[in-house]
Design a protein around this nucleic acid. Sequence first.
RNA 1: GCACCCGUAGCUCAAUUGGAUAGAGCACCAGACUACGAAUCUGGGGGCUAGGGGUUCGAGUCCCUUCGGGUGCGCCA
Length: 590
Amino acid sequence: MSENLFGQIRIFVLVELTSLYPDIPTDVLARVEVTPTREAAHGDMATNAALVAAKPTGKSPREIAAALALALAERPEIAKAEQAGPGFVNITLAPAILLAQIPVILQAQEQYGSSKIGNVRRVNVEYVSANPTGPLHVGHCRGAVVGDALANLLAKAGFDVTKEYYINDAGAQVIALAWSVYWRYLQALGTTLKEGEFAEAAPTGLQYPGDYLIPVGAALAQDHGAALAGPGCSIAESALWLNVVRDAAIAAMMDLVREDLAALGVYHDIFTSEAALVAAGGVEHALATLSANDLLYEGVLEPPKGKTPEDWEPREQTLFKSTAFGDDIDRPVKKSDGSNTYFANDIAYHADKLTRGFTSLIDVWGADHGGYVKRMKAAVKAMAGARDASLDVVLCQIVRVMKDGVPMKMSKRAGTFVELRELIDAVGADTVRFIMLTRKSDAQMEFDLDAAVAQTRENPVFYVQYAHARCRSVLRAAAGLSALPEPDDLSSLDAAEELALIRRLISWPRAIEAAAEAHEPHRIAFFLYDLAGDFHALWNRGRENAALRFLQEERPVETAARLALVAATATVLRSGLAVLGVTPAEEMRG
RNA sequence: GCACCCGUAGCUCAAUUGGAUAGAGCACCAGACUACGAAUCUGGGGGCUAGGGGUUCGAGUCCCUUCGGGUGCGCCA
């Protein structure tokens, strides 16, 4: 039997269906599904085959379902098949088929659930990509976790995944950063300038006043002495120092970012520099490609209706014909002074990813960039040309951190923002990661600090960790029993709770595939929560009745079977936690 | 004005990509404990899925529309 039982049974369904009705078109057959049932009373699996086949065959769904059920029931792997509802066929597997999956899981270990649907297709997942102007703050956290888990998920589904970080080190913000670092440098030298005077004199002002730049300025003073300063520690011509200070600042900030990501367990395969891309002529190359395809023109944009900026005046700019690829208006690639827009750089960057051989691009962005999705997709289509390549953007809505029932204020001004590091230190990386994945990414969420540290069921991390710890506890205790037989005979596993747990376990490969196709890693968190619930329910049988506990010294065959189920549960829990990047707990003690 | 996201139990959120009687947790009510086999469990109440129309065997899910919330809309990245 295949590792994925649903796929196997689906083949049976298709064979019997086409045998009964040979003329069903293949596009209809493609819509035939075999899915887990919501209720145990509906058996192990259900198929919609009769419903989708009704129209092409001209028969009623119930009639087809009845015939299909009859045919399927002949299969030795299927214990029962019956027509139900409007035309479903509910399938109950032969117990041996269900139980046979337990050794499959134990053999595969954490590889269980790994899929080949990705077909080694090269996927690039770009996430975080925060401006290198300071430590990560909580606003970056969700994207970091979602992107990382999504990349893990796709890898498990058989894609060839690269995790990428785009360093925005070419724009005005890093110039402002350089000026802010320069202030710390002058301070380290003992300048008599007041902060207000410096902010007045700097063309960018003092945009990043946080303390975290002090050591960067000090290091520059250490390395360069007063060579970057004017007479008497005054502000020197920027030509003298700006590049040096900017490069040092970016390097220092990226070190900070990497430390923060490491604390969260996030590791990128590659960091790509915007500045390097620009310096290599990537933008000119990309624009030339667009121009060669007649996708650029000089034009004047209309002001947004109902909200015309006060200083609006019509200006001619170079525009990309993104409307040819589904965008609402054409988008500028050059500012009116002729310099490139950020969008132009981003086009070049995505083209670069395509050039590097990725056919599937995924960007994880904050929701405030939602208005940017259409144009970027349009640009990727345009740059891909005849190549089969696509971009999907996963938007992450904002997270409100709640404390004592009220949202915590977060402000980047004056360096008072809540840093990611503080959140990790407060609740732990595992908890941050898991909770960030308990919501669909495009829905706003509240991160309840009180619930996150709670050791109760309302904390989903705890609940799942506890299930794994309980599994491990039983397996440890089993080591103290006298020798048990090999778990060859699993037929004693027939309680409703045991079968429910097994059903959940065998749906793990399917859960991986569905979540990967939808680019929705949060589904894995919910799967694990449900799986933990199934296991806790089984565990609870033993509280009322000691004969139902896992370890029964006098009944070694049953005990061995139960232990196999416990070990399989622990395996799938670990397999899922690995996708989320959460550590499985061996025990829950302090 | 336009685009995108969202609207599900009192609260925070799910719903196997269009499937069967819309589910969990918290809170509330009624029960069970000297703690890693009670950091938990059992039972109960609670819903016109924001409103209206449409598509079809079938809609929380897809289309249209109204209302309400969020994010954006040339020289920030």
